[in-house]
Amino acid sequence: MPDLLPILTSLAWPIALALAWLAGEFGQRWTGLPRISFYGLAGFALGSAQIGVLPAPDAGPVALLADIAFGLILFELGYRFNLRWLRHNPWLGVAGLAESLLTFVLVYLVALAFGSPQLVALMMAALSMGTSPATVVRIINEQRSSGQVTERVLHLTAQNCVLAVFAFNAIVGFWIFRTFDAVGEALWQSLVGLAGSALVGALFGMAVPALLRAIRNPRRDGTVAFALATMLLVALCDAGTLSPYIATLAFGLTARHRRVAFSQAQRNFGPLGEVLTVLLFVYAASTLDWRQVAAGAALALSVVLVRQLAKTGAVTAFAHLSGVSWRKGALTGLGLAPLSVFVILLIEHARHAGVHVVEELRAMAAVTMLLEVFGPLIIQRTLVWARESSANAPEASHAA
């Protein structure tokens, strides 16, 4: 008889993805919770530290596919980012900067209060600045929502992700140099890496629309071209020292302003995007260890609460100046709750770069698990409360 172990190992990921997809479909039908919450729960349960169906995470092809899935989502987020809106309404950008900085300061102080080492507290604070584009874009598309709160959440998500990547890379650089004399060098290298990643993404954003115009049928061929270009861009960044997240965000942003249509039907990149979304959330949750989640539970709960207060409070404070009511400002801040996938992928990149301090970020594992389940639910309910979700339509017709 052939050895069954290699066969079962090769089947682990296909089986896990099928189980996660089924969990998402039936879970959403029975509970009304977003499908991605169940993808995350399935990935966590099947992870190597739990049931053990999935192998331990490494820098292999599955990690690259997860980066590609995240890159496709960031491309779409960048495509929906309107620079002209920020120019006409600079207070929205100020609100994003304020909520990111306030989050950094408060999470840093909370981590120190719990006895975390200074560098670990800094890394936790940097990671907490961000919002997970994977969750935000997925739920907005799933709810088919549109309106002021939706657009503000998208724009602030893109902005604080850039800030979080910059801060995290600077702190990782500082950790590698291990000296306060190298702070300037770490900041400079992070800034150069950020600029280089954005430049490469912008070049793709100019080249692909030009290619589509040469083909003379951009609407039909756009989805495939953008998907293949995103895959190539992520692979190039992965092979080098650039950030695939900043590059794909810049790719989408530049492509939007080259005026190539990316229609409603193409969002999520069709079936390809759906499959990769399942893989992304399963992979992200499978990297977590229940022992780290349990060890960091108390600090995690404090970080989640402080982070949400900082984001909601800062965005609400600038609500009137940026042209919306206090209520819509508060809902926008609440919609920035998701964090999970963004944090996990940044930590995995740091670990693969040899920064083993990530093993000390136990609280972030617990934060991630909490927001893996509740983050999608929070933004789903936020869109419903803002009356921008398609879920409001049945309610309206029933009330009529």
Rank of each mutant, 00 (worst) to 15 (best):
A170M: 11
I344W: 03
A164I: 02
L331C: 06
Y108M: 11
L106Q: 03
W85F: 10
A186C: 04
W85T: 08
L345S: 02
Y283W: 14
S397Y: 13
A400P: 00
A310Q: 06
C237Q: 10
V162F: 14
T31M: 09
L101T: 09
F318H: 02
P218K: 03
I246G: 02
S197D: 00
S243H: 00
V315I: 12
L74W: 05
D289K: 08
S243C: 05
R387H: 10
F38E: 13
L5S: 12
L299P: 05
W30S: 02
G115M: 06
A229E: 11
G32W: 02
S116E: 14
A126N: 06
L109A: 15
E348T: 00
N160P: 07
R152C: 11
Y245F: 15
V293P: 01
R35G: 07
L194Y: 13
S128A: 15
P34V: 00
G222N: 11
A125L: 04
P57K: 08
D67C: 00
L309F: 12
G329K: 01
R219F: 13
G196F: 09
A297Q: 13
I68K: 08
I140Y: 06
A202V: 00
A294M: 13
L309Y: 03
A16T: 02
A225T: 10
V282E: 00
R178F: 03
G273E: 00
L86G: 11
H349M: 11
R178Y: 05
R258M: 15
R219D: 12
R327E: 11
R80C: 04
N169A: 10
A229D: 14
M1A: 10
L11T: 04
L288S: 07
R152M: 15
A247L: 08
I36Y: 09
F180Y: 08
E142M: 00
M124D: 04
R267H: 15
D3Y: 10
R291A: 15
A365E: 14
G115F: 06
V306F: 05
L74N: 04
G40S: 11
Y283L: 01
V275P: 01
M123Q: 07
V94H: 01
E395N: 07
T230A: 01
F281R: 01
S243K: 02
L212H: 05
T150D: 06
A295P: 09
L112S: 11
A295Y: 06
G27T: 04
G130E: 07
G24D: 07
G323P: 10
F251D: 13
